[in-house]
Amino acid sequence: MAKEMLSVNNLSISFGGLRAVDEFNLTINEGELYGLIGPNGAGKTTVFNLLTGVYKPDVGIIKLDGKDITGQPTIAINKEGIARTFQNIRLFSDMSVLDNVKVGLHNRFEYSTLSAVLRLPKYFKVEKEMNEKAMELLKVFDLDKEADLKASQLPYGKQRKLEIARALATDPKLLLLDEPAAGMNPNETKELMETISFIRKNFNLTILLIEHDMKLVSGICERLTVLNFGRVLCEGPTSEVLNNPEVITAYLGE
């Protein structure tokens, strides 16, 4: 049996009287590409926020690669190996494309603030390594020619890609993608699907993605969980789930 990368048990959170996520369970195996779908307001992004420590769950246990990470702060969870992108793009918009990725490399390449201010040899050595690594990542996403542009100057589709590149720079085991294809045209979506497959193979990744674009979901996800009103409606292999009458009702109404 494959190794469990992420296991979520009985996860719940309430905001005031609203049970945003209710007894949520999820198991993702290593190397899997998993989809989390559901109508608007079903609590998908809240699940992401719980997984990355933005919210603390009321009850439930989250285990990453066998280690309990429930209730840890966001930074610690990132260091444990979860990286994410955001539904509404959150880039460091006034910084260059290259610097955005270099921020992602922050915890992997270290030198002290003092060696930066005094420009000691260590600074130049590590900066050079960082530049090479960052350019390598940008090449994967075909962004290397735009490295010197400000992140906000990139067209929309490339901003989405840059966000993924930045997340990858933190060297995650598990990558969470929140609607990566939102606002993309069919061509861009197709290209994105190829990129996701490529990085999953080449970076040894497990991927969990939220998506509304069913073409993308059925095209690349192996298994799905459907969320409705904060509860798991059903889960299983993609084709089965998408043909489930309950799921169709939840999406299209009675």
């Binding site: 990132n78 959150r90 880039l91 006034d94 910084m95 921020v103 922050h106």
Partner: peptide, 14 residues
């Protein structure tokens, strides 16, 4: 500068 531009993303980036 990352914190200035987007605190939430900076935290998520470690």
């Amino acid at each position: 500068m990352a914190i200035r531009d987007n605190r939430i993303a900076a935290e998520a980036t470690g």
